[in-house]
């Protein structure tokens, strides 16, 4: 269970990215965070694992108050929060296998990791995960030789090998084509189900979000303006989040997509 209470972030420039955000994500729930760019989606995700230091408020994961931890404690808790990034953020010049194994860094001492002497159980788990996403043959390729969709799969493996209890997913499909986007989203949701993982998926594509998740949270100017099931996302709600636009197209498209999916 992940709980955010009165989470607020004010940047040095004075921009208020988040104000008094309260949110509870139970175990195993995949939640989509939607909102216009600049609404604070990315900041919120980064405040949870403190890549961005929140100004005030608390973040609690399974009873541990993350916002209070010191450097060592924070590192230990970060292991339980897998993160998936917009531009994959793989270390381009390392091999796929090294990228996956880097998810275990929090569990391995410096010299072992420096010499790439990871425990056999980690190595096996890395291969199993790569096999699960269909990339086991790519293990010794360099990350920059992979296509966008393949890189994001490696990113997913890196997050999962941490053995996390929550996934923080930041715009996983922003740099992918529509088909690959869907495959990646489906993969994330499936894996969360398999492992009973909670996930916050920060996503700007409303249709894609509606297709896969059970709960949608709308963020506008740093505050939660919508929290409910995907079916409840009406034109009014979207207008509240994104401003005045013609939304019938978007919503229509979702229905079409669903049918298409069902037909397969």
């Amino acid at each position: 269970m992940l709980r955010l209470e009165k989470l607020t972030k004010v940047y040095k420039t004075g921009d208020k990215a988040l104000s008094d955000v309260n949110l509870e994500v139970p175990k195993g729930q995949v939640l989509a965070l939607i909102g216009p760019s600049g609404a604070g989606k990315s900041t919120m995700i980064r405040c949870i694992n403190r890549l961005v230091e929140p100004t005030s408020g608390t973040v609690t994961l399974d009873g541990v108050e993350i916002s209070k931890l010191g450097a060592g404690g924070l590192r230990r808790e970060r292991r339980r929060m897998g993160m998936i990034f917009q531009e994959y953020a793989l270390v381009e010049r390392l091999s796929v296998m090294e990228n996956v194994l880097s998810g275990r860094l929090g569990y391995v001492g410096f010299w072992r990791s420096f010499l790439r002497k990871f425990p056999q159980s980690d190595v096996d788990e890395a291969f199993r995960l790569l096999d699960r996403v269909g990339l086991v043959e790519m293990a010794d390729k360099r990350a920059d030789e992979l296509s966008g969709g393949q890189r994001q799969r490696v990113g997913i493996c890196r997050a999962l090998i941490q053995d996390p209890s929550v996934l923080l997913v930041d715009e996983p499909t922003a740099s992918l084509d529509p088909k690959t986007s869907r495959q990646i989203m489906r993969l994330i949701v499936e894996l969360c189900e398999e492992r009973d993982l909670a996930a916050i998926v920060n996503i700007h594509d409303v249709a894609l979000a509606q297709m896969f998740v059970s709960r949608v949270v709308g963020l506008e100017k740093g505050t939660v303006v919508f929290d409910g099931a995907p079916e409840e996302l009406t034109e009014d709600v979207l207008t509240r989040i994104y401003g005045q636009e013609d939304w019938s197209e978007t919503i229509q498209k979702v229905e079409d997509d669903d049918e298409e999916d069902a037909a397969k």
Binding site: S95, Q120, F127, E137, A139
Partner: peptide
């Protein structure tokens, strides 16, 4: 479990030189 996975699980892994 695929054959490619079988070939690698349980074997030590080394960074390609």
């Amino acid at each position: 479990m695929s054959a490619a996975l079988d070939a690698r699980v349980g074997k030590p892994w080394k960074k390609p030189p």
